[in-house]
Amino acid sequence: MRHLHTATHPDIVHLDKVCIVQRMATRAIALQGDKILLLYTERYEDYSLPGGGLEQDEDLIKGMVRELEEETGAVNIRNIKPFGVYEEFRPWHKDDADVMHMHSYCFTCDVDSELGEPNFEEYEIKNGMQAQWVPLVDAIAHNEKTMAQSAKQGLSIQRETFLLHLIQKELLPVA
């Protein structure tokens, strides 16, 4: 799968002599015309692609489908194709490592416009997460406004906004 970008948190100045934990995640890109299926998180006031961490030894595509179904209630997931991988190095605030090295494997797919019931985890409910079909340009503008106004933005919104721009450039039909 093609490499899309590597992001390194500004607190990480070197990777030698640090303990690194590996994490694999997937992200789903489902478009219908100029709209994209995204998760809006009230707590962070941002839009993100549906997806998340893979279980140990989980197949990439099965993990993407599982996360997409859980987070959005998407049904009839089909025409899955690789889009690319986004790589990140972030501080890891647990005892077992200093840095997390995450690969987010992104796939395009088609889903039915009518969504079923999501199966959110407790923290996702507390964060006010909800699946929405959103015009892609609106999601980009919203995230950019949040990034400009938020003092606590992290790599996640930067990743998501980078990916949304790339999706707009490569996958939206030219008007």
Rank of each mutant, 00 (worst) to 15 (best):
H3S: 11
H5A: 13
T6K: 10
T6D: 08
T6I: 03
A7T: 02
T8G: 11
P10F: 13
D11W: 05
D11N: 09
D11I: 13
I12V: 08
V13D: 02
V13T: 06
V13H: 10
L15Y: 07
D16N: 08
D16F: 09
V18N: 07
V18K: 14
V18R: 12
I20M: 04
R23W: 05
M24W: 02
M24V: 05
M24N: 05
A25N: 15
A25V: 02
T26V: 14
R27I: 05
A28N: 01
A30V: 10
L31D: 00
K35Q: 09
K35P: 03
I36V: 15
I36P: 04
I36G: 10
L37G: 05
L38W: 08
L38R: 08
L38P: 02
L39D: 00
L39Y: 01
Y40S: 11
E42T: 06
E42F: 05
E42M: 10
R43E: 15
R43M: 15
R43S: 12
E45P: 11
L49A: 04
P50H: 02
G52L: 03
G52Y: 00
G53T: 11
L54T: 10
L54A: 05
Q56T: 13
E58S: 15
D59R: 00
L60Y: 04
L60F: 12
L60K: 08
I61A: 10
K62D: 15
K62M: 06
K62Y: 09
K62G: 06
K62A: 15
G63K: 12
G63T: 11
E67S: 04
E67T: 09
E67L: 00
E67R: 08
L68I: 02
L68H: 00
E70H: 07
E70A: 06
E70Q: 08
E71N: 09
E71V: 02
G73A: 09
G73F: 07
G73R: 00
N76R: 00
I77D: 09
I77S: 06
I77Y: 04
R78M: 10
N79V: 15
N79E: 13
N79I: 13
N79Q: 14
K81M: 07
P82N: 10
P82K: 12
P82Y: 08
G84F: 09
V85M: 03
V85L: 01
E87V: 13
E88F: 04
E88S: 15
